[in-house]
Amino acid sequence: MKNCNWFMVTCFMLLFSMATSFAQDKEAKITLTFEKVDSLNVCKALVVSDGVPVKDVSVKLSVKRLYSNLPVGDAIATDSTGVATFEVPQDIPSRNGKLFIFANISDDEVYMNAEASGEVNWGTVVVSDNSNVKERSISAGRNAAPIYFIVSSLLVIGLVWGFLIYAVLQVFKIKRLGSAN
């Protein structure tokens, strides 16, 4: 009986994996379009399969960053026309103003994984003000310590060590005074 249970479980697993693999067999294609709507950045992802727009498919939008893609909001399902509409934030930093935007379908029950990308001029160019990088400050490197800091430190250190060296010299003076007598 126990062996029979194992057999049944294995069969169910096989059937389930076959059903899932056949279910995900359909191909889908994503087409991205970018447009400005009332000063908003709107990205539309049209999902078609066999030339027919498909509805209720979850599409995720993301933007390329240095190491990996940053998700833009939550996944949105396509409407009856096969379009998922996203509002892209206007403050995404970019080096040259361009953003690589990705739309993808993943782990869908019916359609295979699909991805599309497009480049758009919606990035905010970040200008770093590095004009003070060579300025002397407490937080600067060792070669850019503030002058007042260096001078006051050396004065204190010099003063204290001056007294210590004076004390050492006095020891030799004691010796001299002993031998002189």
Partner: peptide, 24 residues
């Protein structure tokens, strides 16, 4: 002992130096 003989000059130097170091 650096040639210490306990003469007055040595005592004077020693006490002055000890005082400076005590303050420091």
């Amino acid at each position: 002992s650096f040639g210490w003989e306990g003469n007055a000059e040595q005592w004077k130097v020693l006490k002055k130096t000890v005082l400076i170091l005590t303050v420091l």
